[in-house]
Amino acid sequence: MEAQSGLPGRFSRTVETITATVAIVGGILLLIVAGLVTTSVAGRWLFSKPIPADYEFVEIGIGVAVFAFLPYTQVRSGHIAVDTFTQRLPARVNAAVDAVWDLVLAAFLGFFAWGLVSGAQESFQYNETMVQISWPIWPVYAICAGLAAVAFLGALAVAVLKFGGRA
């Protein structure tokens, strides 16, 4: 099942490669989070030395990872939809409807990206830091903004492909 690509053609292969790469980076981040927690747990248990602010690193890591996953989920049509009532309609109609929803989702993702950019600016301006250690938090917002932008572009690309009857 994994080998089959949802989107044929060179453009779609490029889109899928990019989003898959971003998703893998997110997955590696997830593994790093798991390693960090395990190290902190072991340190706390064996040597009374937990990693300071470990739970905050978990939050940041998971937050960024989820943003990195979104474009891939989008491109793989991974969001759950109910097709029970529309099964009888021609495939082209359904593809067009799906494309419209992709555009709606793209609008939200674009807005989220923009919101995170301004969130990063404000966080920078207000010198916001992590709770337990004084590291600035704005780069996290900036990274998430970038990833949301990738998801926005991914959703647009999928919509274009579906309108073109290629998906």
Binding site: N127, E128, T129, M130, V131, P136
Partner: peptide, 9 residues
Amino acid sequence: TLPGNTPGR
């Protein structure tokens, strides 16, 4: 709220 919720600010 707590000022400590947004540390640094």
